[in-house]
Design a protein around this nucleic acid. Sequence first.
DNA 1: CGCTGGATTGAGGCCGATCAACTTCAGTGG
DNA 2: CCACTGAAGTTGATCGGCCTCAATCCAGCG
Lengths: 229, 229
Amino acid sequence: MNNPGHHSSCDICQLSPFCMEDKNCALSTRCLPLPTDRQIKLKRGETLSWSSDKFEHLYAIQQGAMKTFQTNADGNEIIHGFYFAGEVLGYEAINTGYYPFSAAALCDTEVCEIPFAAMLELLESRPALQKHIINLLSHQLTSSQYLKTSAEQRLAAFLIDLSSRLHADKNNLEFSLPMTREDIGNYLRLTPETVSRICSRFTANQIIKSEYKKFRLIDLDKLRLIADE
Amino acid sequence: MNNPGHHSSCDICQLSPFCMEDKNCALSTRCLPLPTDRQIKLKRGETLSWSSDKFEHLYAIQQGAMKTFQTNADGNEIIHGFYFAGEVLGYEAINTGYYPFSAAALCDTEVCEIPFAAMLELLESRPALQKHIINLLSHQLTSSQYLKTSAEQRLAAFLIDLSSRLHADKNNLEFSLPMTREDIGNYLRLTPETVSRICSRFTANQIIKSEYKKFRLIDLDKLRLIADE
DNA sequence: CGCTGGATTGAGGCCGATCAACTTCAGTGG
DNA sequence: CCACTGAAGTTGATCGGCCTCAATCCAGCG
């Protein structure tokens, strides 16, 4: 219930090609411990304390889920993204050298700390890895595109996206979300009340079935229709 | 007036490191013509006709400006991004192998067609270029973040972003935008009327001075305040 | 000069925010 | 096991910002 990722091992990690080279992990602590590497355990609500503001590591979620966010002048939280098991956060910091936001665990979570310098070194001699990392970055560009207009569109697109990222069974699209209605709202630029109302509306219309953190997508076609219109 | 970019040469192109290696252009037609390479001239309104849906090239704007967009079921245009002289479009297609949207010229425009396969080849032996392209992709992730809530916030952030991307003089923040109010609205998820109204309001409040396509940022601090709040 | 597409401005309506009451859940300790 | 407590979720009533529809103005151009 507290762990939305069905897989806990490295086999769905986006960076596994980096680890599996030579049948041995070249980066993460899990396989080849290096002095500066860490495997970090976070309790629900704890934030990743970057060793400094300076960017040095990417973070791969092994188990659990995280959010990246900023708090603006009014004290409102703006969520930039949610990250689940196998996904990687920190790409945005590569260019500037500084993390543009904080990262907090949505439930008990384990992450691998990946030293980026070592990653770059590894790249130099491996064209396959060059292509892989470029593909990952390209993929990031297409995701997090919830620039839909209406609240229903945004929530529909959000649910469709999450169902696939949580590796939900295609024939039984049921999953549990680790974040609160407020988190969802802060991400989609909606209030928790609006999120809740739309969940209820979708449920009443037999499009989904939602109670608290449990979700089931019933009419995926209709949901897609709402998201794309 | 028709060309918002002050520079017409390659010296501000994001991909110039690729071209300047060996003091000779390794990719674009401008310096080293390859059979499949082209330099394309587009008139205002013309779209880039990808040779196929299949992704094969990145496109660097040499002169002018472009927009990437999709048209949804209702016939509404959703604009994903604006691109000016020196900037590169097409990164989103790398991962999937297909262009997820169309690209149209906002004014008379010249673009360099960059064969991506050749670019990857070039990468293999040049760590400096590997870092450069990864930095470019990382930078793309941080841009196009107009997920502000209010219309004023979005437009303020938009104007600040564009002033820097158009390389406007810091001491005289004046520039002319090639896109219509409708384009801006389609990008910021606002109607052209709302964009127009806010331009008028900002002008009345001595924050900017806008008439038609001409803009001047008068009180940049106040504009930043609006954008960040 | 008139024509045309874009920009501006006004009036009214709708969607989502705000404020508030109540319910349900999860964790704690008796 | 149950009672208590605070956080999260739901639902209702009202308010306000942006959209919609419409009229007018303006610039560019044949």
